[in-house]
Design a protein around this nucleic acid. Structure first.
Lengths: 197, 197
DNA sequence: AGCCTATGCCAACACTCGTTGGCCAACAAG
DNA sequence: CTTGTTGGCCAACGAGTGTTGGCATAGGCT
């Protein structure tokens, strides 16, 4: 029925005249999903932001789910535990996470959607399983404990993101980057490498 | 226009014939808000769960916002830092939070709604300010640092709730209550009472 | 040039939502 | 009993949603 194409302008070699429109749609979608969550981010509003007709969104991304899938793709690019001193992994992870949350709004969108949308939650689980777990597997002493230790680190890092970038608790927003690193790095370090209590 | 009444059956002395209906509505609302968030928890679905007509919800609670306000009221009843040894406050807080999240779904509803709804986020800020901050004020050495320290403790506790009760990361769900307390209590304790790093 | 596909907009469909007003039965007060 | 009030349902409104199909047009091809 729709014989055209998939998504992701710029990754494949094909150049299309509509690439500008496609990226505009994705950018607007990311913004809206990050600001409003899944339900309140309407296709009409996204199209309005991108200055095109709502039907274009459907043509290029199939439906709302497809748009979300195309708009939110996460590459954490976490530091490799092998490439730095064992006792610095906590600090490295915290700083990397702060960078990630502040360099664009993809993670905010993912968290806002994940909180109320089943598909969004599953996508977050996927990111955790395939991008956070491997780091724990390399960093922690006993590989069998890796899932639990990765889970603990995730509670701390996602809790920071939740209160700072989503709920926007004033005292959490007021923390400086240095304060956050100084307080949280030892926690994450302990969750990953300290002996079980 | 509506000369009848406000909310909350059982608190005031007035007995109304409709009290059973009112509590049924609130129970159904809590369930739906906890499971679906604000937008997808429709008044029609809540009314169906409570086996009454949607218009009754409007009559008793005015509108959807009013229903949410009536359905979600939080009393954390956190332990008083003065009433136990200084080094046990972390453990006491973590166990209390676990109890709270498991005894009913109000907190899940509040978090799910807060993640996508401005009013919900503000309500969470209110709970934090009026019920968590005071504990930090009594527990931490320098009162001036209380907001920051309460904020840090909140990142850890809400991060646990988010990954365990909302996103349901399997490794976080798999943690036993004892493991959680053993790992998190020292963290919260440190955030509240340890000297600044 | 002429053709054909890709790009875009418009108008509409079918549906769901929150919300309203009117109507009827059950109860309470006189 | 009569009267007024309360509790409940039904039907509908207006707005907004995701989604669809058709129609114009602009580019790139031969």
């Amino acid at each position: 029925m729709n014989g055209s194409n998939s998504a992701d302008p710029g990754s494949s070699g094909v150049r299309r005249r509509s690439d500008a429109t496609r990226t505009a749609i994705l950018a607007a979608a990311r913004e809206r999903f990050a600001a409003d969550g899944y339900e309140r981010a309407t296709i009409r509003a996204i199209a309005r932001d991108a200055r095109i007709d709502p039907s274009m969104v459907m043509r290029y991304y199939g439906n709302k789910e497809g748009l979300f899938a195309a708009a939110v793709s996460v590459e954490l690019e976490l530091p490799e535990p092998g490439s730095l001193p064992r006792h610095d992994i906590g600090r490295a992870l915290v700083t990397r996470f702060l960078d990630l949350w502040e360099e664009n709004e993809v993670l905010t969108a993912l968290l806002r959607v994940g909180a109320t949308n089943q598909a969004g939650a599953e996508r977050m689980q996927g990111v955790f399983r395939e991008q956070v777990m491997p780091v724990a597997l390399l960093a922690c002493p006993d590989p069998e404990q890796a899932p639990a230790r990765a889970a603990l680190a995730a509670t701390q890092l996602l809790g920071l993101a939740l209160t700072r970038y989503v709920l926007r608790f004033p005292p959490t927003v007021a923390l400086t980057r240095e304060e956050i690193v100084a307080w949280l790095a030892p926690t994450v370090q302990r969750y990953l490498t300290a002996p079980s209590p």
